[in-house]
């Protein structure tokens, strides 16, 4: 026990705490029913500007520190690159012919990635400060044409994969919900067998997603590494965007479907740039309206 004269908290402390807890819950009550919106000027411009400033400062420092250590390896890399250049020249010829062949085949099949969609490139400038929510903040807002529920993809190691969807749009920044968020759902299907299910995030960046409602009858053909893509049935995401690969699956005795763990195709811890897909016109008119 302390002997400084403060043996019991005063009533004022209890009153302050009770008042602020009630106030917080009241705000939460109102905001979860979207009655109250933070004034857009403050939320959209001030917060966004500060986040951009912090991201720029952090980027400057990390690049400066990185540049010093990078100089040491540059010479070694340069020599290795010279040797590789020759190798790549040969490969390039082969690659060009493959691109041409791919284009012709796509034309024949009528498949192109989002033919009518505009892609808006954006930089991830901030993430959620806590661990329960997992939003990303990108540096593009409604001024640049971003709209709520736009699908967001990224390119990484030659793969075009799903990142998430836009859940909040401000003037110069937007918030995107990544696919590992526990409230993220996407209609998905197995690329090989076209069996349809629903993929859901588990709340942690490194934890695989869960693919539900794939019938047990698919078990024989299901293999580790099978590709999972969007089905397009949710009217939010265009079909055939790669979500990830099957990592493992569980069989529940009393259920008619499998529980499949899906490792996302895009490593979201390394993503810096993303593309919001303006799919207006590629989906049905009420796309995303019921979200």
């Amino acid at each position: 026990m302390k002997n400084d004269g403060f043996h019991r908290p005063s009533r004022t402390v209890h009153r302050k705490a009770a008042l602020l807890i009630v106030l917080s819950l009241s705000i939460l009550f109102i905001s979860t029913r979207t009655v109250f919106r933070v004034p857009d000027l403050f939320h959209g411009y001030v917060i966004g500007t500060i986040q951009k400033a912090f991201a720029a400062a952090g980027s400057f420092v990390s690049r400066t520190v990185g540049a010093v250590s990078e100089l040491r390896t540059l010479k070694k890399d340069y020599e290795a690159l010279l040797a590789k250049t020759q190798e790549y020249e040969l490969k390039e010829r082969e690659f060009t012919s493959l691109i041409e062949e791919n284009r012709r085949l796509k034309d024949l099949l009528g498949l192109t990635s989002f033919p009518d969609a505009k892609k808006i490139a954006a930089h991830i400038i901030a993430r959620d400060p806590g661990n329960t929510y997992s939003s990303f903040v990108i540096d593009k807002g409604y001024n640049e044409g971003i709209r709520k529920y736009m699908p967001v993809i990224a390119f990484q190691d030659g793969v075009e994969g799903l990142v998430g969807k836009i859940i909040d749009v401000k003037a110069t920044t937007s918030t995107l919900q990544p696919l590992y968020d526990q409230r993220f759902f996407v209609a998905a299907r197995l690329a090989k067998t076209r069996a349809e299910g629903l993929a859901n995030g588990r709340g942690f960046r490194d934890a695989p997603m869960t693919l539900l409602y794939i019938p047990k009858t698919e078990m024989d053909s299901l293999k580790q590494g099978d590709i999972v893509v969007t089905s397009g049935l949710d009217q939010v995401f265009p079909q055939d965007i790669i979500i990830g690969r099957v990592e493992s699956y569980q069989i529940n005795e009393f259920s008619s479907s499998l529980v499949i763990a899906v490792q996302p195709a895009i490593d979201l811890s390394r993503v810096e740039y993303v593309f919001a897909i303006d799919n207006q016109g590629t989906l049905t008119p009420n796309a995303g309206g019921n979200q």
Binding site: H7, A17, S24, V38, P129
Partner: peptide, 26 residues
């Protein structure tokens, strides 16, 4: 405001934890 959480969520959590810390200080 920085999070995707609804307004009031972190306010409630922070106030509750701060209240417990103040009580513990006694």
């Amino acid at each position: 405001m920085l999070s995707a959480a609804p307004l009031g969520y972190y306010a409630f959590l922070y106030v509750s934890c701060a209240y417990l810390a103040t009580l513990l200080s006694y």
